[in-house]
Write a protein that binds this DNA or RNA. Structure first.
Lengths: 126, 126
DNA sequence: CATGAAAGTAGTAATTGTTACTATTTTTAG
DNA sequence: CTAAAAATAGTAACAATTACTACTTTCATG
């Protein structure tokens, strides 16, 4: 993979925030430093970076994909009102893949968990 | 909610299968009985039926939504090769919503789990 | 029953998030 | 340096879904 400034900027931005930005948001933010970057480049590199393990792609139900600079195994919670995404580091299910593997008698690669929540901000009225 | 034949046919079809069909598949199948039904009607009613709790909408990562006539709490496994979706009835996490609720200090409505698997058929070569 | 307002539909157009394409520019091994 | 490989910008295309509109069906009420 050859170096590109655009990819570096994209990775740096996503790693620097905890907001789980969408491709569009990454585009807007990187454009503040590099007004020439194109949306296609952002999509292409987010895809590449997540396929190669530098980023996590969070596929949201009926919403745009989000990206996470924290590639450690953890879950996510999404507020059903404002769509903000939060990390959940506890309660990771270590043995579940094995259990399901025995149950279905097949190879289990990974699992994803999403909690549907109402975040504190939205709870206290908005 | 007023009666409609289309909605009845849609619900009946999804309830009758364990294949977790997409909207397009539901459209094709219902059309065998009712060649006048339109795709928009299928989308509209699948949405309505799942929002009202008659069906489950399974939002697949980077793939079309699937629908499940079994509205009991359970998880799903999707084969990363053939995209088939399977039900997983065991290992449902009863207390997890409460734990996450305490952790984030917010209301947790529900959670979804998807296991990424390689199904037996695909495993034995395809 | 008749009726008319509310709810639903068919068919099509529009939208949205994402991917593909092409000509040009950048990277990098030799 | 230089040329092949890789990457980009900008635009067009795509696929899944939603919105719109004119027409049809449902159903509570007289």
């Amino acid at each position: 993979m050859n170096y590109s400034r655009q990819r570096e900027q994209i990775l740096e931005y996503v790693k620097s925030v905890k907001t789980h930005p969408t491709a569009e948001t990454v585009y807007q933010k990187v454009r503040e430093d590099n007004s020439n970057i194109s949306l296609g480049t952002v999509y292409r590199n987010l895809d590449r970076l997540s396929r190669d393990g530098y980023l996590l792609r969070i596929k949201m139900a009926n919403d745009k994909d989000r990206f996470d600079g924290d590639v450690s195994k953890h879950y996510h919670a999404v507020c059903t009102h404002c769509n903000q995404v939060f990390d959940i580091f506890t309660n990771y299910l270590k043995d579940t893949d094995d259990k399901v593997s025995k149950e279905l008698n097949c190879k289990v690669l990974s699992h994803d968990v999403i909690f549907n929540i109402i975040c504190p901000d939205c709870e206290r009225g908005f």
